[in-house]
Computed example of a mutant assay.
Amino acid sequence: MENRFWKTKPLEAMSRPEWESLCDGCGKCCMAKLEDEDTGEIYWTTVGCRLFDAGTCRCSDYAHRLAKVADCVKLTPANVRTISWLPASCAYRLVAEGKDLYWWHPLVSGSADTVHEAGISVRGRVTASETDLSAPEEYFDHMVEEEL
Rank of each mutant, 00 (worst) to 15 (best):
K28W: 00
R65K: 12
S109W: 03
W19N: 03
S21M: 06
V47A: 11
L11W: 07
Y92T: 03
R16W: 02
A118V: 10
Y102I: 13
A63L: 14
R93M: 08
W103G: 08
V95Q: 13
S21D: 06
E35A: 13
T114Y: 02
V47R: 11
K74I: 14
L107H: 00
V47N: 06
L101N: 08
A112Q: 15
N79W: 08
N79I: 03
R58M: 00
W104H: 04
P106E: 04
Y43C: 13
S89V: 12
G98P: 05
V69M: 04
E12F: 02
A54E: 10
M31I: 04
W103M: 08
K28N: 02
C59A: 06
R16K: 05
C57L: 07
S109A: 12
T82Y: 10
A91K: 08
L22C: 06
D36E: 11
V95G: 10
K33W: 03
K33G: 01
E18T: 07
A70T: 14
D100I: 09
K99M: 12
A118Y: 07
E117I: 14
R58C: 00
K33S: 08
V73C: 09
D61L: 09
S109Q: 08
P77S: 01
D61Q: 06
W44E: 03
H116I: 07
E41V: 15
E117V: 13
A32P: 01
A13W: 10
C26D: 03
D38Q: 14
S111L: 08
E37C: 15
N79P: 00
R81H: 11
H116G: 01
L22S: 04
P87S: 13
L107D: 04
L11E: 04
D36Y: 04
Y102E: 14
P17R: 01
A67N: 00
E12C: 01
L107Y: 00
E20N: 06
E18G: 01
K28I: 05
A54T: 02
C72D: 01
R81I: 12
S109V: 10
T46Q: 06
V47I: 12
K74P: 02
I42Q: 12
R50D: 00
D36T: 13
C57Q: 08
P77D: 02
I83K: 13
L51I: 02
C72H: 12
E41T: 15
A13N: 12
C72S: 05
C30T: 02
A32N: 14
Y43E: 15
E37Q: 15
M31P: 01
T82H: 11
E41D: 13
A54F: 08
L94F: 12
K9V: 10
L107K: 05
D113P: 07
E12Y: 05
T76Q: 11
L51A: 01
R93F: 03
E37A: 15
W104E: 04
L11T: 02
M31E: 05
D36V: 14
Y102K: 15
A118I: 08
E117R: 14
D100W: 15
E18C: 00
D100T: 13
A63Q: 14
E117L: 14
I42M: 14
T45C: 05
C57W: 07
L66T: 09
K74L: 13
Y102Q: 15
S111R: 13
V95E: 12
L94D: 09
A63F: 04
T45W: 11
E41L: 15
M31S: 05
L101V: 08
R81L: 12
